[in-house]
Amino acid sequence: MTVVTKPLETTRATAVEKGGRGWSRIVLHAVVIGLMLLWLVPTLGLFVNSFRPAADVARSGWWNALFPPWDFTLDNYSRVIAANNLGDSFINSLLITIPATVIPVMVAAFAAYAFAWMNFPFRNAIFVAIVGLLVIPLQSTLIPVLRLLAGAGIAGEFLAVWLAHTGYGLPFAVYLLRNYMGGLPREVFESAAIDGASPTTAFFRLALPMSVPVLASLTIFQFLFVWNDLLVSLIYIGPTNPDNLPMTVRVASLVSSLGGETHFLTAAAFLTMILPLVVFLFLQRYFVRGITGGAVKG
């Protein structure tokens, strides 16, 4: 990065020659595009392989497919789509992911506001305890939580996974939002209080709208975490109610018990990737707009 920015600054400092500036822009773009391509190589390889016959994938690298004779096939995709009720499990993934994203983000927003701007006993101690939960590995909670959910009679239902993901997502979400909301200007809340706004009004009218950028990025994180999750769904929905299993579990079971038939995974990977990509692109625009909007007002 420094290599790139330095010539930029110097040209800007001298700022005489237009040609020099254009030249450095070309270098900058070349470097950025080069890095992007490098970053995309594994994904590109996966994409090319998803259209190749299994025997070719096993015997030669993906780049061989780029040269004639071309031998592409849609077999992998048609097999993946036909197998294992993938359509149903796509819907299941949505039904799991959307509530398991909305619930923790909402709860964390309330909690973060309380931790940042409300006074109650042991506020800091409770906050430290919640942040401390970040170090507990998810795996160590599987057995007791499953026992709890089974006791409540909801193991195997979507509700179980929503609650589990809410619990697992909250410590980080509260931590992130508390830090952001704590940085909002104190004067705003003070004047709101003077004008007679209750904490609830201040939260909905002030804290929430001002936190849109961080809420957007938290939503992206949580959405991707839940969408890609295999373990939590497998354990809490589990084989006791396989109709509710999400896409990740279905995709994993495309592979035979000894690790054969992996060529289907390339196609399956692209099918599972579509929605997160759309969400990311959509929220990313929103995210950028949030930042610039705040900057102008500030």
Partner: peptide, 14 residues
């Protein structure tokens, strides 16, 4: 109702 998982040992222990 069949579910396939290669992490069978971990799943069943849980």
């Amino acid at each position: 109702k069949y579910t396939g998982s290669r992490g069978l040992g971990a799943y069943l222990t849980t």
